[in-house]
């Protein structure tokens, strides 16, 4: 069971959280102007990366708030969590290597 650091509450067990899929996929401001292909890209297509993923979690059985996390999907090790609305943080090579280890 993962140990996840809620930016608001601190480290808590995974069972308190709900995963919200890949982060930084903003809902288009005006979906009706999108082509079907563009809409499908937004709605369904995912990077599904093997490596660093930016993903959303919600502290569902805690403060209830969404936040983002950077995690390496090869190890499940987190680099960091950060508040919703912040851009995807830069990761140093050392941080990336530590997460991949």
């Amino acid at each position: 069971m993962l140990l996840i650091k809620c930016p608001y509450c601190g480290e808590r067990a995974e069972v308190e959280f709900a995963n919200g899929g890949e982060a930084h996929i903003a809902r288009p401001a005006d979906p009706m102007t999108l082509s079907d292909e563009e809409w499908a890209q937004y709605l369904y297509m995912r990077d599904n990366p093997k490596g660093l993923i930016a993903e959303r979690w919600r502290h569902a059985h805690g403060c209830g708030r969404f936040f983002n996390a950077l995690r390496d999907t090869r190890t499940d090790r987190f680099v960091m969590t950060y508040e919703m609305g912040q851009p995807r943080p830069d990761v140093t090579p050392e941080q990336a290597a530590e997460a991949a280890r």
């Binding site: 995974e14 599904n48 990366p49 993903e55 999907t73 499940d76």
Partner: peptide, 10 residues
């Protein structure tokens, strides 16, 4: 619930 290539879960 999460994306993972680790072949293990909780």
């Amino acid at each position: 619930s999460y994306v993972s290539y680790t072949q293990r879960g909780g």
